[in-house]
């Protein structure tokens, strides 16, 4: 017999305590993954899953919001991940894959240092 929805009741009881702290997107770091046709076709889905799961696992959902964005017109550099942090210039990572996304998570989102070698800025592509 496969799983049913019953288990959600346990989750509800466990989670309800800290509900008040959620859903405040102000001041959060926003991580935007390009998920238009171009992004999806070049591998954005596993990149988004990696980032989203990392943020959940490290209990950083109150600080970081991973979400999707449309096509930003740089289809040839997809998968693209943009990191938008209040008060700082936007960082655009290009040619992402799950391994690079993991690195961006560890070094940039946790460690606070931009992973220069993966940015659009550092590539010689124009």
């Amino acid at each position: 017999m496969a799983m049913t929805l019953d288990k959600l009741k346990e989750i509800r009881e466990k989670m309800q305590a800290d509900l008040n702290q959620r859903d405040n997107s102000e001041g959060k770091i926003r991580v935007l993954v390009g998920m238009a046709t171009c992004g999806i076709a070049s591998g954005a889905r596993p990149v988004l899953r990696t980032l989203s799961e990392d943020v959940q696992e490290k209990n950083m959902t109150d600080k970081i919001m991973v979400t999707q964005t449309g096509c930003i017109g740089l289809c040839q550099y997809e998968p693209i991940v943009e990191v938008v942090e209040p008060g700082k210039p936007k960082v655009t990572y290009i040619y992402m894959n799950p391994d690079k996304a993991q690195e961006v998570f560890n070094r940039h989102l946790v460690g606070g240092h931009v992973v220069r070698e993966y940015t659009l800025e550092s590539s010689n592509l124009k």
């Binding site: 496969a2 799983m3 929805l5 288990k7 959600l8 009741k9 989750i11 509800r12 466990k14 989670m15 309800q16 509900l19 959620r22 859903d23 989203s52 799961e53 959940q56 696992e57 209990n59 959902t61």
Partner: peptide
């Protein structure tokens, strides 16, 4: 069932993953 617990919280995501896989 979840009341106000968001669908994209970690435990729920993990539940959905297991639910989809097993079913």
């Amino acid at each position: 069932i979840l009341g106000g617990v968001p669908l994209n919280s970690q435990d729920v995501t993990e539940f959905i993953r297991q639910y989809l896989k097993e079913n």
